[in-house]
Structures are given as C-alpha cells and as structure tokens.
Nucleic acid binder design. Structure first.
Lengths: 120, 120
DNA sequence: TTGCTATATTACTATATAGCGATATAGTGT
DNA sequence: ACACTATATCGCTATATAGTAATATAGCAA
C-alpha cells in the first residue's frame, strides 16, 4: 500500500497564509532584477550616493531612482540626505546571505554541468 | 578629510558579471510569485502530483502547469512520470534556506514595528 | 533673486507574464 | 479501436513594470 505515507515524513515546512506568501514574494521580486542586484552588490562595498550608483548601474538616472525606491520600499536599503546628495546603504543584512546562497547554488549547478560534459 | 575611505572597509562583495546577475535574478524571479511559493511550500512536505498541487494552489490547472514549468526550468523542482500522473519534488535544497531567511527577516521587521507601536 | 547640481517624479512606450478557456497530448483500461 | 484521466500547450486579455525623455523639486552658492 504505497498510498498512505506518514504526514511527518518530511518535516519543517509550515503552511503560510496568502498574505505572508505575498509579502515574501514581494521581497524576492525586489531581488529579481539584475540592475537592483547590481545596485545592492555595489552598496555591499559601503555607502554610495545616487550619482555613483547611476555610474555603476549603467542605465539612466531616472531608472536607477526608481529601482532604488523599490529597494527602499521593501526595506532593503536606507537613504540619508547629506547636502545635495542622497547617500544609500544596505539596511537588510540578510541580503548578503540570500545572494551568497543563490551564488553557491549556481556555482554547484555549473560544476555539475561541467562534470557531465566531461563524462560524455 | 572624510572623502577618502579605505576601499576594503566593507569586504566580501565581488563584482559580478551581467550574465551572472541575470542568472541570479532569474532564480529570484522564480520565487517572486505567491503561487509558486505555495507550490514549493507544499512540496516541502514531500512529493506531490500535479492534481494535488492544483488543489493546494487554489488556481486553475493550466496556471499551475505553467508555474511548475517555470520552477522546473530554473531547476528548483524535478518531475517524474508514474503512469498517468506526474510527480513533482524539490530539486534544490537551498530553497528552504532562502525562504527561512526571508521569513525570519520579515518576522524581525514585524516585531520591530510592533515594538515601535508600543513605544508611542 | 538667479543659477547650478543632485535627485525624484511624471508621462509614455514596450515587454513580460499571470490567469483563463479551449484544445492537444500522453498514458491507461475496455 | 474508443473512452477516460492527467497534464501540457495554445491563444488570448489584462496588468505590472523596465526603460526613457522631459519636467519638477530640493539644496547650495553667488
């Protein structure tokens, strides 16, 4: 009888409410654009003003401004005004962790694929 | 002279190529939809067939099928055919980690907000 | 005030994709 | 062969958002 498996066979994952899932999705969505990732990657070296970020991002100022507001809205970055410039910094320490996990997973997959090519 | 800061002050973050950023973004994008998160959350309890996932997801079968193909395409789930049904399972163990980090961060922010309300 | 710089916002276009109904395909049983 | 079930795909609409150019706003200096 392979039908009735034990309900606790794979532990851990609680059911999440739709509202919570939407919140989580919103945060992942903020990380789902290469330019925003580049901005965050730049900010990991420390505080930067918007003009510096525009240079680093390689796209227009208006576009960067919008991307920054997305990151700010989900609390991933913080901004402070210093005279004429707006300085941006990472406000969410977990971002680095998230990106590292993604990167190491990508690396593992890449190495796996390379190994498969070897074994041809 | 607050201008010249040490370039190694915040270590760790390497510059990533545009192609790599696009790959990372693609994976975050797969996690950026509540229904896909719900599917993954369901699969964390173990292997499920598509019909079961349709029930869990609360949306149409065609829609679930598309979401599953997105998750499969980025290697987050694997599928195997067993007679009439297609069984799905998590293929990327890092997903759980990613979601846990997001959740604990959300929880922390929520508690922070609650504390601020207390201090009114 | 005027002018300059840094940043944000607006208005728009173009593209991506979520969702749906209908249809196609694959596997099983008769 | 036919019928049935499970899943995938197609064609479509609606919505979200990335990108851009132009304009608005904020802060400083003369």
């Amino acid at each position: 009888m392979p039908k009735k498996i034990h309900p606790r066979r794979d532990a851990g994952a609680k059911a999440l409410s739709d509202a919570t899932l939407e919140l989580i999705a919103q945060r992942f969505r903020a990380l789902a654009e290469p330019i925003r990732l580049k901005l965050l990657n730049t900010l990991m070296q420390g505080e930067r003003n918007v003009t510096q970020l525009v240079e680093a991002a390689g796209t227009g100022q208006a576009n960067v401004s919008k991307h920054l507001s997305v990151l700010k809205q989900v609390g991933m970055i913080a901004t402070r005004r210093d005279g004429l410039v707006t300085l941006c910094s990472i406000a969410d320490p977990s971002i680095k962790q998230l990106c590292e996990i993604m990167c190491s997973r990508l690396k593992a997959e890449h190495e796996q694929r390379a190994k498969e090519f070897e074994d041809l």
